[in-house]
Nucleic acid binder design. Structure first.
Lengths: 342, 342
DNA sequence: ATCAGAACTGTAAACGTTTCCACAAGTCAA
DNA sequence: TTGACTTGTGGAAACGTTTACAGTTCTGAT
């Protein structure tokens, strides 16, 4: 009774297999399970202080933790969220995921992580799974269009991060003004007298990549800089693909700068330059996009656009809270920052 | 009846809020929920083919997906796993997490991701949460010692990846022979006539870091290379900490090579060198540990030990399966590879 | 002393499954 | 025809919660 300092005394769960349930607590406290529930969830119903104390004592002695599965079934609320990201290899996305997990943990929510690999079928398998698990909400870190997604957004709270779904405007979204950022970046390059430029953009099926491309082209046209078709390449958002596209561009010879659809592509270009003996930044400037947190340490040669990844996650989290409470959908555009390292 | 091509026809769930349950299917098929369950879970009980067809038709028409929460409550099996990693910022860990997710997805299991930040209290909060959620098993990607962990390993299936828990030997573990790898690495450096060496090791509270340090010191002694105390520093496993430790070492002057406890530390050292005008690898060789997948693209100056991260995840997954079926705990030591880039 | 209302408590239903059990109907051998 | 066994089926219990509801006790005002 008084030996609350004897911590493990009543923990019959350790090793015994069966975890302790609300019934065990009720029995030990000599009250009904309803009272236990009421005492523990301070919100609902009223409990006498005597009961509350008995329940607390029993719960502590038994080391009771409510079974979230039972709770979820009853309350129809799993308090579990899903994050589908297109490519967890990208450190930038990992950083967003990390912050998102922090935000959720503060609310005692948990995060299921899925990877779509930019493949609609894989994404649909993820969606299938997360719907069966009745998650409370879904975050997309760069969604692709897929049949399952269309159904999902009709039924469940969804927040898009960093990439809109072009087919479905008006959904909750957090990102930057990619068009303006890309335009500003190229303009800044032109102002540095880089005039023979190449562009390796991401897939135009991605709304974000498409906007970035338009911004780049717009700035070039404005500045009277002509970018020949042969210097514009479409890549997947990977280092390998950047590497591949860099080949023909370097073959071409006269090129001052390469503007890439994201940092991953830029890394691929960098490696190709190294292999070719092209000095970066002396012979060639490389511009990326996103500002992967590693850049500061590993890529002093990289100019890029900083997308505020921490804020991206925090705002996405807030968006989700808004969505859950009021159902209101919003687009939030965060400020970007031009990072000129070389 | 025959309009199975009219896909969304019967999906009354879209937008209506309430998802369809087994009762809906039973009603539509004109059978009991027990029969629906039996028909859908082909394993248990026997069903007539007539019933099976009716159930399949109804399930398809209603777009029924079993509620995993109900199923978990009944079967006491969530088919959800947790991964606690110490630092998702580290790309190496992210890569392991990614592969683990792939393995689990193939088994229709899902992965809850938590981050401990190497803090025992944070780790215990994660453990608390995942236990309440009744996960089927837990993967640790670099665990720290904590009270909650001691309880966890007594009750739940746990696989340790990359770092043992020194206090509790005999648990399922996947990793490399850190002592041997570190020794081989230093020996290879000595063979290149690097004799003025510095060491920045990880926290010796980490079993892995401790083994690596011992391996380094052992090889140095063997080779007759003396490493003065002032050239041995303990860092946290972060870039910032590597950066900090590099300062005094570079101040010291005569140093050929720095051996680091992991790649993150090495990145910090690299940046400090850049700022100091120390040329890498011409003036100084840097050795890391893990071989972050980005290295190939961004760190051609880095020598390191490749820990097979894909295999790490796959074997961890297998270990978990073994643990769940037979309860057998094993240590699996994977081969490492010395990567000499510069 | 009576009664209204507040405060507290327990019973039971519900959430969506799986599975035990009992029962019905069919098959087959004696 | 009977009995034994197989096959298929539905009812009901169980998993661990929360909460509506009804019942009991207590308080305080009439």
């Amino acid at each position: 009774m008084e030996n609350s300092d004897d911590t493990e005394a009543g923990d019959r769960s350790s090793g015994s297999g069966q975890a302790t349930s609300i019934h065990d607590v009720a029995r030990m406290a000599g009250v009904s399970i309803a009272s236990v529930s009421r005492a523990l969830n301070s919100g609902t119903g009223s409990v006498s202080s005597a009961t509350r104390e008995k329940v607390f004592a029993a719960a502590k002695a038994l080391n009771y933790r409510p079974n979230q599965v039972g709770r979820a079934l009853r309350s129809q609320m799993t308090n579990t969220f899903a994050l589908i990201n297109s490519n967890i290899q990208n450190n930038f996305y990992a950083a967003v995921a990390w912050e998102l997990e922090r935000c959720l943990a503060a609310e005692k929510a948990a995060l299921l992580v899925y990877t779509s690999n930019e493949e609609p079928e894989t994404q649909d398998r993820c969606i299938e799974d997360l719907r069966a698990r009745r998650v409370s909400g879904v975050f997309f870190l760069c969604a692709v269009d897929s049949p399952g997604l269309e159904v999902l957004i009709g039924n469940d709270p969804v927040v898009f991060i960093n990439r809109r779904l072009e087919a479905c405007p008006g959904f909750s979204f957090v990102g930057i003004d990619d068009f303006a950022a890309a335009r500003a970046q190229v303009r800044s390059g032109v102002r540095r007298h880089l005039r023979d430029i190449a562009i390796i953009h991401g897939p135009t099926t991605s709304d974000t990549s498409a906007r970035r491309l338009r911004g780049m082209l717009d700035a070039a046209k404005d500045a009277g800089v002509e970018v020949p078709q042969s210097m514009i390449h479409e890549a997947r958002l990977s280092m390998e693909s950047g590497y591949d596209c860099a080949g023909p561009i370097l073959d071409h010879g006269a090129v001052d700068a390469v503007f890439c659809g994201n940092d991953q592509i830029a890394y691929g270009v960098y490696r190709r330059c190294l292999e070719r003996g092209v000095r970066v930044p002396d012979d060639l400037r490389i511009y990326g996009f996103d500002d992967n947190p590693m850049n500061e340490w590993l890529a002093p040669w990289l100019n890029t656009v900083r997308v505020p990844h921490i804020d991206l996650a925090r705002v996405a989290f807030e968006q989700m809270q808004v969505l859950l409470s009021s159902g209101e959908k919003r687009e939030v555009i965060l400020p970007y920052e031009l990072i000129q390292r070389a």
